[in-house]
């Protein structure tokens, strides 16, 4: 009996490279994982605690006001002053959040700058526009990084938004997590069970989102049944306001005074 290995065992067979189909499934899995990480309580607890000096509704109004002010004014000195205030605010942030805000601002501002670059050929003076855009992005990223989902809902409640709207926003955020988890599980299952390439990756996508839609309906029906079982008759209870209205009002008056002054100053 020969001890020689068969020829097929001695030849090197290159491993099949990952198909583009798998690549896009993996890419989407990563994006979904990133989204779900924002909902993860464990990840939230791992982050350093953030002191909230401002009530959520004032924070939302202040961000909105800053963006509006930046958008309305064309005064360089005013932009400079706002930048100084923003830098001061950034200094109060723990390092973890500071890095995140700066990283997001730099990435988004780079994208915005790329969009503006060709206009330099047409018009040399777009730097004011570019710096305003970067400042707006800094303000928005500061808000997004330092605000949790529940604070947004709280802000909407305090700003007298209809309870029906708040209820729907709440459902959206809750089910974004649930549907996201379902889709991620589905994507992983498809990646694990599929071998080789198919000619039409879109067929898989049709199946994925078709199933996700049916799941959406199931969730909505189950949720409605649960709401009815708890006595829901289509009316939403009024949410009490925060216990320190004088403090909120003081903040609002201060905000309005500062924004008014800055607006007049920037004209």
């Amino acid at each position: 009996m020969s001890t020689k290995l068969p020829s097929w065992l001695t030849t090197n067979t290159p491993l099949p490279t990952a198909s583009s189909r798998h690549h896009f499934l993996e890419q989407n899995s990563h994006r979904l994982e990133g989204l779900l990480a924002r909902f993860s309580q464990a990840a939230e607890q791992a982050q350093p605690a953030l002191k909230h000096y401002l009530p959520p509704q004032i924070k939302l109004l202040t961000t909105f006001g800053s963006v509006l002010l930046l958008s309305l004014n064309q005064n360089l000195l005013l932009l400079w002053l706002i930048l100084l205030v923003d830098l001061g605010l950034l200094l109060t942030l723990p390092q973890f959040y500071l890095r995140r805000v700066l990283r997001q601002t730099l990435t988004t501002a780079a994208m915005a700058l790329l969009l503006i670059l060709p206009s330099l050929l047409l018009n040399a003076n777009v730097w004011l526009f570019a710096s305003k855009t970067a400042l707006i992005l800094l303000n928005l990223n500061y808000y997004r990084t330092t605000t949790t989902f529940s604070q947004v809902i709280q802000a909407l409640q305090q700003l007298h938004c209809p309870n029906g709207l708040i209820f729907v926003v709440d459902i959206t955020l809750t089910y974004l997590k649930m549907l996201g988890e379902f889709l991620l599980g589905f994507l992983q299952a498809v990646t694990l069970r599929t071998v080789g390439q198919t000619k039409h990756p879109y067929r898989t996508i049709g199946l994925l989102f078709g199933t996700l839609y049916l799941k959406t309906r199931d969730y909505a029906l189950a949720l409605y049944a649960a709401m009815e079982a708890r006595g829901f008759i289509g009316e939403y209870p009024r949410v009490p306001r925060t216990r320190k209205p004088w403090r909120d009002n003081l903040y609002i008056i201060l905000d309005l005074a500062i924004f008014g002054l800055l607006f007049l100053f920037g004209r």
Binding site: S20, R21, H23, F24, Q27, N28, R31, L32, L35, G164, F167, V168, V169, D170, I171, T172, L173, Y175, L176, M178, L179, G180, L183, P201, Y202, I205, F209, L212, Y213, T216, R217, Y219, A220, L221, L223, Y224, M227, G234
Partner: peptide, 27 residues
């Protein structure tokens, strides 16, 4: 909603679905 009462929660869940559709990159 008068015809199909589950429409209220369905809008919320559908908004989450729309979010995932816009997030999903297609080759």
């Amino acid at each position: 909603i008068k015809e199909k009462k589950e429409t209220v929660p369905l809008i919320g869940v559908a908004a989450a679905l729309a979010f995932l559709i816009m997030m999903f990159n297609l080759p």
